[in-house]
Computed example of a mutant assay.
Amino acid sequence: MSGRSRVGFCLSDKKRKRMNLAAFSEMCAGQGVQVVEMDLGQPLAPQGPFDIIVHKLSDVIVESEHDQQSRHLLANFQSYVSAHPGTILLDPLPAMTRLLDRFASYRIMSQLHNSLRDWRICSPPYLAIHSPGDMSSTQQAMAKQDLSFPLICKTRVAHGSLSHEMSLIFSAASLPDVHPPCVLQGFVSHGAVLHKVFVVGDRHFCVERPSLKNFPSGPCDRKTIFFNSHEVSKPESSSHLTALDEQMPCLPPPSSEAMAALVQELRVQLGMALFGVDVIIDIRTHTLTAIDINIFPGYEGVPQFFSSLLDHIKKVLDQRHSTGLRSDSEHGATGFQHNT
């Protein structure tokens, strides 16, 4: 990396505060990198030029489907990116948009057992429910997908507070509790431990969190359990839903090599540098099981996040410099591809 680079950050107010962008800016300044907080509500060209734009436009992307102002903001951002091909985007908009749809991200996860069979990595079977229908057709579709009770029901849109509102369904009699569009995912007993994997470029970090306790497989007359996954998996969570039988043996930690293989495969499949994946370990088979993928997560519990993000930014800039390509801030469009 040569000279002083300009990195634009296009984040929501909530994300900016949670990330503590001011502290990150101070760190970058000492490394020859200027951080610019972008205002999507103002013309972007005068705010540039940018060597890299780091963004999380999930709110805008989701709301653009029904809100004209959000649609306008997204169109302006896309126009700026198209007009400045020398600016690198972390991460590509099409890749981020795909991950906002659990129907799409679960298709990706469902293929992991093919590419990572040697590591015994998989994801639970699932069923995408597009619209309300009769329960008999849903049960027939479940049988084809090898789905059995209990089931986790999740919203189709993987963003916003509603995306954390889930339910645990124990029998066909409770299927009317399902509200499409949504995903039904097979529940895997995993010893109430969730492994949150945070990816920053070619580095990743694993943090343990509480998770749902074990439930017997097969249908039962238990009523549907509604819960907020964010609340259940907080570091300090003491929910009754996470309380294990004291005689439950501890599961072995996930293999670091297997985790690395999973992250590498997802980086290839997603074409992204900033994402997270939620992993559990099946108490019966000890199989590593991916249950969700997250866009630009909070990185709570990862003290190395700032240094890792800065290292990745510098690496991306060095790679471009070594190829002889120039950014928009170095005068001139280059046709550099917007991926990481």
Rank of each mutant, 00 (worst) to 15 (best):
S2E: 04
R16H: 05
K17I: 00
N20G: 15
A22F: 03
G30N: 08
Q31C: 15
V36G: 06
D39P: 03
G41E: 01
P46V: 13
V54P: 02
H55S: 01
D67Y: 05
S70I: 14
L74P: 03
L74F: 00
S79I: 12
S79R: 02
S82G: 02
A83G: 01
H84S: 05
G86N: 10
L90I: 09
D101I: 07
R102Q: 03
R107L: 07
H113I: 10
W119N: 08
W119Q: 14
I121N: 11
A128L: 12
A128N: 12
M135K: 12
Q139H: 08
A141T: 15
A141F: 04
A143F: 09
P150V: 06
P150L: 02
I152G: 11
H159L: 02
S161Q: 14
I169D: 07
S171R: 01
S174H: 11
D177I: 15
D177V: 09
H179P: 14
P180W: 09
S189V: 08
S189W: 05
G191V: 11
G191Y: 01
H195E: 08
V197F: 04
V200S: 15
F205G: 06
F215Q: 03
S217Q: 07
S217R: 01
G218W: 08
C220Y: 00
T224D: 05
I225W: 14
F227M: 13
N228A: 03
H230C: 15
E231T: 11
E231F: 15
S238G: 12
S239F: 09
H240L: 06
L244H: 09
Q247L: 11
P249A: 03
L251A: 01
S256M: 12
S256F: 13
A261W: 01
L262V: 10
Q264S: 13
Q264F: 07
R267V: 09
L274P: 03
L274W: 04
I280S: 06
H286W: 11
N294F: 02
I295Q: 07
V302R: 05
S307M: 13
S307A: 14
V316G: 02
L317C: 05
H321R: 01
G332V: 04
G332I: 02
A333P: 05
G335S: 14
T340L: 06
